[in-house]
Design a protein around this nucleic acid. Structure first.
Length: 502
RNA sequence: GCCCCCAUCGUCUAGCGGCCCAGGACGUGGCCCUCUCAAGGCCAAAACGGGGAUUCGAAUUCCCCUGGGGGCACCA
């Protein structure tokens, strides 16, 4: 059994600061896949140590988004677990304890510098084009003296005492060894003056305490990766396997998506937010398939994957460290593919809310019949409303200019509609086969093309120039309604003839 | 400015020294099927950023350049 096959403990650790987006969805997916594949545990942990950035409702959206994608976890704030609590805001005392422990070990120190002074130092460093870092004022303070000041209630933070000389080598699964000069590792703040931990401390302590074996996170953590490894080493803990995922770039491939650009996408029904994608009629199977392949591949040809396929085939080794541009047309493609692979009953149930949202009253019997016609024709669920909404309408209102057949006059079109009515009226068993036979006969008698005649009927019956196959549609609508709609169209055409339009 | 990461068709990618005058997919163009639109089938155009080095042989290894991305908070 390879190293990878041992049961892992992985965690998805989002901070509830906004909408759940594709990047976090992918990280969560990879976490989930490797956990399920190895028979390990997938843990959800909320990183909400920054109270200023907390967004109410974000945690709920996160949980909803994960569930929608089909991911479930073994431990988390909502279901508990043996290593809780799973919300960092509830673990403050733990971080304070470990921060003090680090001070005691000589790996961290109290710092009494004010944010004001720090800001001035930074600006000066900037002006001098120096390396921007903490200037070390409190680093050399006498520990007993510092402790006394703390006891006196002086406002302070705890900083990590990063090594000043030498290099630090860390290992990323995808990139191999990364060696940095220790001069570039700052004395980061571990514990803020409000007594709350920052990410660097909280995440490391939690990952260790929660026995996380593989840390899978975004590459925005690469620059502080050595610091994190150093914290592990200072405590004498065994490091997890570190995996830094590439970032998602905007479709152009130039830079990551800004807020404004994300909003701009919405005009085309696209979005980087999971909740929006659901709203737009994308199905989770497609989204999962799509994001799984942005940064991971199975081989040189297989692209269609269900969640369980992915559990079966996923491996961390086949992750790609290069940044990936988001390609929404590929999402459309996968959505179509997965929609077409759905069972009719399943698809029908998923379609229903979209029709209802479109103000249609859905007859379940009709819906079940309409679904197979719609299935190969939609790329998103809400496309069904445009293409097949007429099935659930009492009346349709064709546009007179669209009722005129190709290369035909208004008068001719009226006559054809009238003759079609007659032909269809005499069809006893009103199914697609019989109506098509009758109509093809009429087409031949008239010496016209099928396209000319069927086009008129299509507009009459569906109110649209584009629709599912005509005769199947007529069968679903039924003889009575079909004839009524043709009658209505005939009247429309004849009235226009009388009024001398066109 | 400093630090880190990355680099194959427009995009997602396969390729881990000879199987590659580079394979698949999306998108694009064409054809077939066809009552419209799709779906489906077939075909086509389309890439190893540049320069050195190693080697009998490099898309694959090493170095430099260039380009792109990320980071430089008492945010995560």
């Amino acid at each position: 059994m390879s190293e990878q096959m041992k049961p892992v403990r992985v965690r998805f650790a989002p901070s509830p600061t906004g909408h759940m987006h594709l990047g976090s969805g992918r990280t969560a997916l990879y976490d989930y896949l490797i956990a399920r594949k190895t028979g390990g545990k997938f843990i959800l942990r909320i990183e909400d140590t920054d109270r200023k950035r907390y967004v109410p409702g974000a945690e709920e959206e996160l949980i909803e988004g994960l569930h929608w994608l089909g991911l479930d976890w073994d431990e988390g704030p909502d279901i508990g677990g043996p290593y809780g609590p799973y919300r960092q805001s509830e673990r403050g005392e733990i971080y304070r304890e470990y921060a003090r422990k680090l001070v005691g070990m000589g790996h961290a120190y109290f710092c009494f510098c004010t944010p004001d002074r720090l800001e001035r130092v930074r600006q000066e460093q900037q002006k001098r084009k120096d390396i921007i870092r903490y200037d070390g004022t409190c680093r050399g303070l006498d520990p007993d003296e510092a402790l006394k000041r703390v006891a006196n209630g002086e406002r302070h933070v705890i900083r990590f005492k990063a090594p000043r000389e030498g290099v630090t080598t860390v290992h990323d699964l995808l990139r191999g060894d990364i060696t940095v000069d220790n001069q570039t590792i700052d004395d980061f703040v571990l514990l803020k003056s409000d007594g709350l931990a920052v990410y660097h401390l909280a995440a490391m302590v939690d990952d260790h305490l929660m026995k996380i074996t593989h840390v899978i996170r975004g590459s925005e953590w690469l620059p502080t990766f050595p610091l994190h490894a150093l914290i592990y080493r200072a405590f004498g803990w065994q490091e997890p396997v570190w995996v830094h995922l590439s970032v998602f770039l905007k479709p152009s491939g130039k830079g990551k998506m800004s807020k404004r650009e994300a909003a701009e996408l919405g005009k085309d029904g696209y979005s980087i937010f999971i909740a929006d994608l659901k709203q737009s009629g994308y199905i989770p199977e497609a989204v999962v398939n799509w994001i799984a392949l942005m940064g991971w591949s199975y081989d040189d040809r297989t692209e269609f994957f269900t969640l369980s396929d992915l559990i079966d085939k996923f491996s961390l080794e086949r992750l790609n460290p290069a940044p990936a541009a988001i390609n929404f047309s590929k999402l459309d493609h996968f959505n179509g593919l997965h929609i077409r692979s759905l069972a009719i009953g399943d698809l029908a149930q998923r379609l229903r809310p979209y029709f209802e949202k479109g103000g249609l009253k859905v007859d379940p019997v009709i819906l079940e019949k309409v679904t197979p016609l719609v299935q190969p024709r939609i790329t998103t669920l809400d496309d069904a409303v445009d293409i097949a909404g007429f099935f659930f309408l009492e009346h349709v209102e064709p546009r007179i200019e669209e009722l005129i057949g190709k290369d035909l006059s208004l008068r001719e079109s009226a006559e054809i509609a009238q003759k079609s009515y007659k032909a269809l009226e005499s069809v006893e068993t009103f199914n697609a086969e019989n109506t098509e036979t009758a109509m093809r006969q009429l087409v031949e008698e008239l010496g016209l093309t099928a396209g000319q005649v069927f086009g008129i009927l299509r507009v009459a019956i569906t109110g649209q120039k584009v629709s599912p196959p005509l005769f199947e549609s007529m069968e679903i609508i039924g003889k009575q309604k079909t004839l009524a709609r043709i009658r209505y169209a005939v009247n429309l055409l004849e009235n226009s003839v009388e009024k001398g339009y066109f």
